[in-house]
Nucleic acid binder design. Sequence first.
DNA 1: ACAGAAGATTTCGATATCGAAATATTAGCA
DNA 2: TGCTAATATTTCGATATCGAAATCTTCTGT
Lengths: 168, 168
Amino acid sequence: MPRRTPSAAELHRRAVATYVAAGGEESVQRVITAVQSLTKKLDQWYARQLADLDVTAGEWAVVTSLAKAAEALTPSQLADLTNVAPSSMTHRLDKLADRGLIERTPDAENRTRTYISLTHEGWELFSLAIRGSDVVETDVLQDLGDDERGELARLLEVVIARLDDIDA
Amino acid sequence: MPRRTPSAAELHRRAVATYVAAGGEESVQRVITAVQSLTKKLDQWYARQLADLDVTAGEWAVVTSLAKAAEALTPSQLADLTNVAPSSMTHRLDKLADRGLIERTPDAENRTRTYISLTHEGWELFSLAIRGSDVVETDVLQDLGDDERGELARLLEVVIARLDDIDA
DNA sequence: ACAGAAGATTTCGATATCGAAATATTAGCA
DNA sequence: TGCTAATATTTCGATATCGAAATCTTCTGT
């Protein structure tokens, strides 16, 4: 018989122990493991929320990429930003265009290139989903005081700043 | 012409601004956005590293789940842990079993159930990949002092502890 | 003991994704 | 100019994933 589901905190402890036993450094694994399990939980919630709007995680990734870019992007750029093969993007964009969330605009200056942009409906969907997910996200951070939340953000941003320099 | 690729830090700033403009709370978005872009980068590195070992991200998720559980799991549990449909797990396990990384053991007490466990080779692959990824992970956290790293871990663990209570 | 509900895994048809090749355009350069 | 290389997107065949249904086993209640 499978035993009772352990708490997230307990799973985290075990995961860190496992990684350390396999040769990882403890302080590193505590951070990385926590970041990953947090993302995993968030992804589950987003998936449910997006299902209500009849949008897949992959489609949502396209919408947010366009929203964040604040300018038109090419299919290749979107494929790159969303970690997917360029050939897969074609079909995704077809579906999104059919639903009226994005539109393709051929580049007049370079006819091999197509620009993708959010339609008004696309922006509305984005805004709607963000307001919904902000609720869950706020809940997740509830146990952190204002100062702690700021400190957490600061530390993460130090890490982010380093991302480009690695592996290059 | 597409302009120069912005830095991760710059992308982060913009993303937060976009989410705030769409109705998100700033201190929340700073944290959540940072966590997600960090995970995305890590996933890219893992994918490359795993490709060298001829393992997909999905297969790796199965291996780590088994390693962390430290006991045999059923296909359903694995599907749940790795966010995939139970029917998809069947084929994944077939492939992993063909490669000798896992093995299926029928449960003697309940013949509808099958237990999946890592083989010796499975453990070796796990250990090898962990030692490899620890290198990158350590690099990522390089700009944080020991105390800062500890504080980051602590804050994240506070958040983790709350995950179970949400949405239930 | 037995009928029906619940559970676990697999099979099946439809769809999504991948990598490689095809197509079309632009850029570099002799 | 004209030829080759590079770039952007799409098409194509193979594989992976999904949700629903099928199969088999165990549990529940009478």
